[in-house]
Design a protein around this nucleic acid. Structure first.
Lengths: 198, 198
DNA sequence: GGAGTTCTTGACCGTGCGGTCCACCATAAG
DNA sequence: CTTATGGTGGACCGCACGGTCAAGAACTCC
């Protein structure tokens, strides 16, 4: 019936996401977006709307991917406790996020005060993460690796806060060795090795 | 000899700092800066140089203030352990930072990739904070409230990461009660009540 | 009071921004 | 092949941005 699209939407969203990730929202110009996506202004606007909507699309795509990966990591690891430890240590070695931090976190810091939609999305995202981690904590409790009495959601929140703190510290240029040591230290204190060890 | 300034430099820096804090660097226009400072463009440029230099001045002023407050809080609290606990819980109730997070952290997220000077300043700032907290940890050890064997700097880094994580979570719109509970949970696990309690 | 110096104000400038629009093109249906 | 439809690329627009500058105001010293 008509001319088909010559680009893949997901590819464009990934390219755009990386650009926003590197430079932030305000510091990314439409020219940047055209360059990294390989599309003209008209195509971008026809397909995604204006800059802000494109950003929100890329952000949602990012958090969806992150949650898929989190869900997979938490469910596929044989021992739930190991998965929880990886929550703290894995982000340090993640090549996609090295020194760039987390796109959702960056966006919250840059736009959280000004854009209620970004703030609401951040809130939803971290609630979902908390729930996923909470499920994994509960599994670790069932597996006998964590004390059964504690509230899984409470521990999940503590873990998430610690993780975000670590990811942020890595942005300040802290060397990987120190970062890893801190991650292990936090893991050791928040996730003791055995249930009734003390 | 000549006409004196009609403004107080520190007052201007504070006003400008709040503006950058609320809106971020890129989203703050010169007009915003003129409005909040009450100065004309010429005065701003003559006194501080361009927008970026003004921002860096405000940022340095902010971190200096923060470190003064930290130094004071850590040294004036009778029991060092209490001061360390406050590190985690106090930021939640701080009216100056409520929902705005930490200006240094926000700036690192927004500009860390693009501006090496901001990154370097962030690195220096958090190293100083780590050292200050480390001193306090050592005091808590001398006071018998923390195990003597552990490395004070390592614990300081864990505490700082946890604090930054908490401050960030508060930016996502997490309610104060949950936030406080998480802070206490983290404090309980990172700062056990007595040295040899387990 | 006059001279000299610095601060202040606001008009002005060039640039690059986000966003619009339209002429052209590739495709599919008839 | 023709026609209708949606995709594409880039010219174009108005605006607000960061930054400059010159003329006047406020002050000190002589």
């Amino acid at each position: 019936m008509a001319r088909p699209r010559t680009f893949d939407e997901k590819q464009v969203l990934n390219a755009v996401r990386d650009q926003f990730w590197d430079a932030g929202y305000a510091a990314t110009s439409l020219e940047d977006l055209m360059r990294v996506s390989g599309l003209g202004k008209g195509s971008l606007y026809a397909a995604f709307g204006d800059k802000r909507q494109l950003f929100l699309r890329a952000l949602r795509s990012y958090t969806d991917d992150q949650h898929d990966a989190l869900r997979k990591a938490l469910s596929e690891t044989p021992r739930a406790l190991d998965a929880l430890r990886l929550l703290l240590t894995a982000p340090i070695d993640d090549p996609t996020g090295t020194r760039r931090g987390c796109l959702m976190a960056n966006s919250t810091c840059e736009l959280g005060n000004a854009d209620p939609e970004v703030l609401a999305h951040a809130h939803r995202t971290y609630e979902t993460s908390t729930a996923l981690i909470g499920d994994c904590v509960a599994r670790a409790q069932r597996e006998g690796d964590l004390p059964a009495g504690a509230d899984p959601i409470a521990l999940a929140r503590a873990l998430l806060a610690a993780q975000q703190g670590l990811v942020f510290m890595s942005r300040t240029g802290l060397d990987t060795a120190t970062l890893t040591a801190t991650a292990h230290s936090l893991a050791a204190q928040l996730l003791p090795d055995r249930a009734g060890a003390h």
